[in-house]
């Protein structure tokens, strides 16, 4: 470990008791924060203090705390998942903040993601996009030997780049159009790159794009905000591939 320092912060947190309630910006002092703490551990400490003081702790989603489950996420000082590139909120450490900083914390905002409480939002729309076609239609049993179908390493690597998406929703939160194209494109792209996914590529692209539109996500206007905040550095190349797959589904 690097030697830890202790810093003091002022938090401004958007609080909202329920989906149909108004939100308020509340101010809290986060004192004696070790720079070795993760951002969520800092919130744990603030919550412990709030609880002991008889107040309602700040609700936030989190689970694995190692940057892979995709459960956590909030907008920190205007940027989804906070200031560090390629990092989920749980992996953001307090050594990236300075003593005396003011930190504004807000939930993901999008028509398709309703606020449940405070920083917790409903991302069920992502599940619905996957259900529209984000799979290869095979049943358990009967698959051929795994090595019977060689896949060029380069393709497998590119598919893996796309498959690394953790479904956190930061791309939607960052996009001025609240578009889910990076999320949707990553899945369409992964399966389109692999020979196993080709038989259904057309149907998949058409169905997933239609689901995305229906759920209230906006369109892509090449702002590239999604790519900039994606904690897994998913490239907008996958949006381009999605568009090609979508066009092919319509015309060829």
């Amino acid at each position: 470990m690097t030697t830890a320092k202790t810093i003091h912060l002022t938090l401004k947190v958007v609080r909202q008791t329920g989906p149909d309630q108004k939100s308020n910006l509340e101010t809290y002092a986060a004192r004696n924060v070790s720079t070795d703490m993760s951002f969520l551990e800092m919130l744990d400490v603030v919550n412990e203090d709030l609880t002991l003081a008889g107040q309602d702790p700040i609700a936030f989603d989190h689970d694995c705390r190692e940057g892979i489950c995709g459960m956590c996420g909030a907008v920190v000082n205007g940027r989804p998942h906070g200031p560090q590139e390629g990092t989920t909120l749980c992996q953001l450490h307090m050594r990236h903040f300075e003593d005396g900083d003011e930190v504004v914390i807000e939930p993901w905002r999008s028509r398709a993601f309703k606020v449940i409480k405070d920083l917790v939002v409903d991302r069920g729309a992502f599940d619905q996009i996957i259900q529209a076609g984000g799979y290869i239609s095979i049943n358990t049993g009967g698959a051929p030997d795994a090595n019977s179908l060689p896949v060029p390493k380069e393709m497998a690597d590119q598919a893996m780049d796309a498959a690394a998406c953790i479904g956190c929703g930061a791309c939607v939160a960052a996009c001025p159009n609240a578009s889910a194209m990076l999320f949707t494109g990553a899945k369409i792209s992964q399966l389109a790159l692999l020979p196993q996914g080709r038989p259904e590529a057309k149907r998949r692209a058409a169905a997933m794009v239609a689901a995305m539109d229906k759920l209230g996500f906006g369109n892509c206007t090449n702002e590239r905000e999604c790519e900039a905040v994606c904690p897994k550095n998913i490239s907008i190349v996958h949006i381009a591939r999605m568009n090609r797959e979508f066009l092919k589904a319509g015309f060829f």
Binding site: N147, V151, A156, M160
Partner: peptide, 22 residues
């Protein structure tokens, strides 16, 4: 062994060698 076959068929992008095999 069945698991690996099934997961490859599902589109799990396992690491591969340059020859394209797992």
């Amino acid at each position: 062994n069945l698991i690996i076959d099934h997961c490859v068929a599902q589109g799990v992008p396992f690491a591969r060698d340059y020859g394209g095999l797992l």
